[in-house]
């Protein structure tokens, strides 16, 4: 596979991650487009350290970070099409989480935790890969991940843990 092929192969995952991160399909595709163009422009200088996929995720995360600095946080509400919500029909087998709840819980996570959780839980990256993407020590990432998992469990979970509503207010106001 050429670098160009690998760049193309990484795009679906980048889109998936960006939509989950931003919860806005247009903003997500804009971000991925910028990421793609930057990767294409810089591919000659890429020296093959790590995977192309990891390199592109790093670009995407950095672009997103730059974008956050440039503009104040806008009101971005969760936008996932109706057909996805259908997964959460009542009567789904036990143990199957209500997707709407998960979605809402993810939206409430602090962004640092959301970024970390999605890389590992959605994209299937190892701690080492995700830490490289985010520029974090593995230990820092692991504890961030632990907090995100715990918040998610508290928000979606058992009756016994209903009391433990997420205390840390997320970045998104409903």
């Amino acid at each position: 596979m050429t670098v160009l092929d690998e760049i193309e192969a990484a795009i679906p995952a980048l889109r998936r991650y960006a939509v989950a991160l931003l919860r806005d399909r247009t903003a997500a595709d804009d971000l991925v487009q910028d990421c793609l163009e930057r990767a294409l422009a810089r591919r000659a200088g890429w020296r093959g350290e790590g995977s192309v996929r990891g390199w592109m995720f790093r670009i995407l995360v950095n672009l997103h970070h730059d974008g956050q600095r440039q503009r104040p946080k806008g009101v971005q509400l969760t936008l996932v099409s109706e057909d996805m919500a259908e997964f959460s029909r009542p009567g789904a087998q036990e143990g199957h989480m209500a997707l709407r709840e998960v979605q809402a819980a993810i939206a409430r996570l602090p962004e640092d935790q959301r970024k970390a959780l999605l890389l590992v839980a959605l994209e299937g990256m190892s701690l080492a890969e995700a830490a490289a993407v985010l520029g974090l020590a593995e230990g820092t990432l692991a504890s961030r991940l632990g907090r995100a998992r715990a918040s998610l469990r508290a928000a979606t979970g058992r009756k016994t843990e209903k009391a433990a509503r997420p205390r840390d207010e997320g970045t998104v106001q409903p």
């Binding site: 998936r16 997964f87 989480m97 997707l99 998960v102 979606t156």
Partner: peptide
């Protein structure tokens, strides 16, 4: 949790 994330965002 992972399965829920995959169901939510996998189709993209």
């Amino acid at each position: 949790q992972d399965a829920a994330l995959a169901a939510l965002y996998g189709p993209i």
